[in-house]
Lab assay of single mutants.
Amino acid sequence: DVEPGKFYKGVVTRIEKYGAFINLNEQVRGLLRPRDMISLRLENLNVGDEIIVQAIDVRPEKREIDFKYIP
């Protein structure tokens, strides 16, 4: 289970104008929005990159997770 405030290693699987989709595993995916990136820009991410993200909002009923990147 993903818990708000905890850090997780994930893989960038898709990049859109509104953010990057990060997979923690095959069943768990969330969104990293540009506003939640500190010292990292969306255009510097590539599909396949491994990054450490912090879960900031977890909505299991909608199967949605918002992430934050903190270097």
Results as ranks from 00 to 15, higher is better:
Q27I: 12
L31F: 08
N46H: 15
F21I: 12
L42K: 04
F67G: 01
G48C: 06
I22Q: 01
P4L: 15
K6R: 14
G30S: 01
L42S: 03
E50C: 12
I15E: 00
K6V: 09
K62L: 14
Y69R: 02
G48F: 07
M37N: 06
E43R: 11
I65N: 03
K68P: 01
I22W: 02
V11K: 13
Q54F: 13
M37I: 06
F21Q: 04
I51D: 00
F7R: 08
I52N: 05
D49P: 02
K6A: 09
I38N: 11
E3L: 15
Y8P: 00
R33H: 05
V2I: 15
L24G: 01
L24Y: 02
A20P: 00
G30T: 02
E16Q: 10
Y18V: 07
P71A: 10
G19V: 05
E26V: 13
E26N: 14
P71C: 09
R35P: 05
I38R: 10
P34T: 11
E3Q: 13
I38F: 11
F67A: 01
D49E: 08
V58M: 06
L45D: 00
G30E: 01
L42I: 12
R63T: 08
I65T: 04
N46F: 15
E61P: 07
E16C: 09
V11M: 11
E26L: 13
I52K: 06
N46G: 11
L31V: 06
E50F: 15
K17F: 13
R59S: 06
L42T: 04
V58I: 11
R29M: 12
R35V: 09
N44G: 09
S39L: 13
R29H: 12
Y69I: 03
E43P: 06
V28Q: 10
E16I: 07
I15H: 01
Y18S: 06
V28S: 06
V28A: 08
R41P: 05
I51M: 08
P60L: 11
P34W: 10
L32A: 01
D57R: 15
P71E: 09
I38W: 11
F7L: 09
K62Y: 10
L42V: 06
V53L: 04
L45S: 01
V12H: 00
V12M: 01
E43Q: 11
P4S: 11
I38L: 11
N23Y: 10
D1Y: 14
V47N: 04
T13P: 00
V12E: 00
F21H: 07
F7W: 11
G19Q: 03
D57Q: 15
Y18K: 06
V11I: 15
L31R: 04
E43Y: 12
V12W: 02
R41W: 09
G19M: 04
I22H: 01
D57E: 15
Y8L: 03
D36F: 07
R29C: 09
V12S: 00
E64K: 08
D57F: 12
V12G: 00
R29G: 12
R35I: 09
R63N: 15
V11A: 06
V12D: 00
N23S: 14
D1E: 13
Y69P: 03
E50L: 15
P34K: 13
S39Y: 11
P60D: 09
D49H: 05
L31C: 04
E61I: 10
P60M: 10
G48D: 05
I52F: 10
I22T: 00
V58S: 08
P60A: 13
L24V: 09
G30C: 03
E50V: 15
A20F: 03
L31G: 01
E64S: 08
A20D: 00
G19R: 04
E16K: 10
E26F: 14
R59E: 04
G10E: 01
F7K: 07
Y18D: 05
V11Y: 13
F21S: 03
G30H: 02
D1L: 14
N23L: 09
I38P: 07
M37Y: 03
P60H: 13
I65Y: 09
G48E: 04
D66E: 06
P4Q: 14
D36V: 02
G10C: 05
L32Y: 02
L31P: 01
D1I: 13
P60I: 11
D36R: 04
I56P: 01
G10R: 01
P60W: 13
K68A: 15
A55K: 03
K9D: 05
R35F: 07
R14E: 06
